[in-house]
């Protein structure tokens, strides 16, 4: 067993499954709350104001969505990384791509967080 062995795929594979399970829970909850059980005859049409009002009703909705964003970003980028790994990027290319993924991930999380802060803070 002389080839290089890093075990790097193990954690990535495991976290992809864990984040996938969380995302299933997040998405089902999100769809139920905002779309499936929204009765337009009593609650009116879904618009920015109604969503804002709905989400601002509890502190736990804020926790929920601040967790939702990083889980979505991680699951998406880790999945793309798994595809790229199949093409065996060389050492330098892998480092470069990892750096790009970290930057893109952090930027997406910051954009998502800023949107949520605006939403919960009452801005548009």
């Amino acid at each position: 067993m002389t080839d290089k062995a890093s075990g790097q795929g193990t954690l990535g594979w495991f976290l992809q499954r864990i984040s996938g399970i969380f995302l299933a829970f997040f998405l089902i909850t999100h769809l139920n709350v905002h779309h499936l059980f929204h009765d337009i005859t009593t609650s009116g049409l879904i618009n920015f104001g109604s969503v804002q009002e709905n989400l601002s009703s509890s502190f736990w909705w804020q926790v929920f969505y601040f967790l939702f964003v990083p889980f979505v970003v991680f699951h998406a980028l880790n999945g793309i990384w798994a595809i790229i790994a199949d093409y065996r990027p060389s050492g330098n290319a892998a480092i470069f791509l990892r750096a790009i993924f970290w930057i893109v991930g952090l930027v997406l999380i910051v954009i998502g967080a800023m949107t949520l802060i605006n939403l919960f803070g009452g801005g548009v």
Binding site: M1, D3, S6, G7, Q8, G9, W13, A82, A85
Partner: peptide, 15 residues
Amino acid sequence: YERLAYLSTDNGIFR
């Protein structure tokens, strides 16, 4: 465990 480490490399089970 040595076998698992080798099988978990870039050439192994996670491909």
